[in-house]
Write a protein that binds this DNA or RNA. Structure first.
Lengths: 335, 335
DNA sequence: ACTCATTACGTTAGCGCTTACATAATTGTC
DNA sequence: GACAATTATGTAAGCGCTAACGTAATGAGT
């Protein structure tokens, strides 16, 4: 799914979706087994069943919702005959919620369904279900203890001053060349032997034959890399472009590409090509914007099994820039 | 939180709550950093930003929502000037969604915020965040492959025929005596040395001194246990009552309690007491219904550090049964 | 070419929850 | 004991989503 590629950025959406699936599953089970209750009723009813009559606020605190939600839910439950409200004799403000006979009996008959749900969830999800529960618990606690917004804003404050800078290869950064590329390779494809060779020994495989390697840094974090391979006299290959997923959108890829092209030109190359895969659409788009043109066939004698796209650098100075309509009034301002 | 005690039964509610927290956090971050977008907009906008113009259905499929949701969201985004709809020249049914200049620029300026979110989430949640992501991914896939409702209903079908039966101790069940008790002990308290002694060696610690142990079985699954300890001539202690969380609500606890009391009476005991903890409210409630009466003080010379409740069995045959009002017309029917 | 099923989409009603507000009861303070 | 602050609640409006429906365009089969 697309959302999973966003990882931390779309947690809310994914959790919501999963939540809905569980609600729907529970409703389907209750309906199929003639239980006569709805999934949304369950937390309130179960709480009242275990703990006896309770006030709206108590219930709300227990099940982690607002008093309004509980109050409205209580109305619905009362209408369904599961519950009745009465005034608390001790405190005139409170309205005590208590299950009716019908409500208690509905729940009392649900024991086997609950057992079936627990077992069924374990059947379907196995260890993952337990992992999910544990992670849920841990995240709930972590969020209670350390407000996440604070952490994010603190990080943002330091990131804001930092600028992406492009630096050439140096031995201290060697391992980043491997890890940055291994991550997306493992995610989308497999690491082929030639990848392993190049990534593990960049000096021998890239630099000594006359190529170049660049890194993108944000502050002191290495967030991306890119290699220019020397294929033949005047012929270079752009390869091993990788940007840490956490740092997409900072323009690091674009800058790395620019640095590689500049180096290619500085060395007076006449041909610059790259091989990629059609599933990597954002990357292909970026290559196109930088001046690469997709070729109708794949390259003869390609290094990689995964290559199904072949592009050659062919900047046309004359052709109008894409994405900027010529009749726009506002001049594109550099920020 | 109460919900976490329900584990698999309230997954929907907890996931929803966590989802809302992440949405709220994201909105707060976007607002605080003046990003000008809302958390709900993000998946659609990011998708269009990465992949270029797309139809409503494409977007909906990518972000896992209905076309209606995307259509309505697109209206809101268009109103905010982030996006515009246009007709697909190739297919008159489709309406292509494309970011406006403003939309693209809004996203282009968000790189550092996204990086900060990823880092901040990792700061706050640490390993748990990764676990959550992995568990999410795994559960999403598992649910796609094996529909959970089927598993649950299958389990329910077999459970429905099964009946809870109470059986006395036998050596084959020895380990259940430990595991059933260890689970709730570890969850709420710690396992004290005397617990370990009794649970590991039930024959020596319970049976040989003149006590008894019962198990509750549902089909071939052992779901609960309970011990009657012989304290002194005619004096018995009810202890080590434990029911598997997955099987609460089947009346196993009540049945076990009944079996223990019957055994106590069969042996002609005159005093039956128990020690418990005030935090175990459902259990205390069950003891009361069975005829135990809470004492004003804790027992002198208690075995357990966790005991702060002392109850003595004192059934009053004369007193009206609780929970069944005497003036009800309908006779309580056994099911 | 002419149906008929399918597909893509927009619209409406409704659900479940939240926020914001109003109100009544209780508590604390002098 | 009067009065302000707090607490517990109900109600209204709104948000984000879904389900259900209707409509227009497309594709398939003859």
């Amino acid at each position: 799914m697309y959302l999973s590629s966003l990882s931390e950025l779309a947690l809310g959406s994914r959790l919501k979706a999963l939540s809905d699936r569980f609600y729907a599953a529970a409703d389907e089970v209750y309906r199929a087994s003639g239980a006569g209750i709805e999934s949304r009723w369950f937390p309130v009813m179960r709480f009242l069943w275990e703990r006896g009559p309770a006030t709206v606020t108590d219930v709300a605190a227990a099940i982690g919702q607002t008093h309004s939600a509980v109050s409205q839910l209580a109305d619905r439950l009362a209408r369904a005959g599961m519950l009745k409200r009465r005034n608390d004799p001790a405190d005139g403000r409170c309205s005590l919620l208590a299950l009716t006979e019908k409500g208690s009996q509905s729940l009392a008959g649900l024991g086997k369904i609950w057992a079936a749900i627990r077992q069924g969830v374990q059947d379907s999800l196995g260890r993952e279900g337990e992992n999910l529960l544990q992670a849920l618990q841990a995240c709930e606690r972590a969020l209670d203890e350390q407000p996440i917004v604070g952490s994010i804003l603190a990080r943002h404050a330091t990131l804001k001053r930092a600028k992406v800078e492009i630096v050439p290869f140096e031995p201290l950064l060697r391992e980043h060349f491997y890890t940055l590329n291994a991550h997306w390779l493992k995610k989308h494809f497999v690491i082929e032997p030639i990848d392993e060779q190049v990534l593990r020994h960049p000096e021998q495989a890239v630099l000594e034959p006359g190529g170049a390697i660049f890194f993108a840094r944000l502050g002191d974090v290495v967030i991306g890399t890119c290699a220019l391979l020397h294929e033949a006299p005047g012929v270079y290959e752009l390869s091993k472009m990788g940007v840490d997923e956490s740092f997409r959108g900072l323009g690091a890829g674009h800058r790395l590409l620019g640095a590689a092209i500049a180096e290619f030109q500085r060395r007076g190359g006449h041909t610059l090509f790259l091989e990629s895969n059609s599933s990597l659409k954002p990357a292909l788009h970026m290559y196109e914007r930088a001046g690469f043109v997709r070729q109708p066939t794949i390259r003869a004698g390609s290094h990689y099994a995964r290559a199904d796209v072949y592009m050659i650098y062919a900047p046309k100075e004359s052709r109008p820039k894409k994405l900027v309509a010529p009749n726009r009034k506002r001049a594109p301002r550099k920020t």
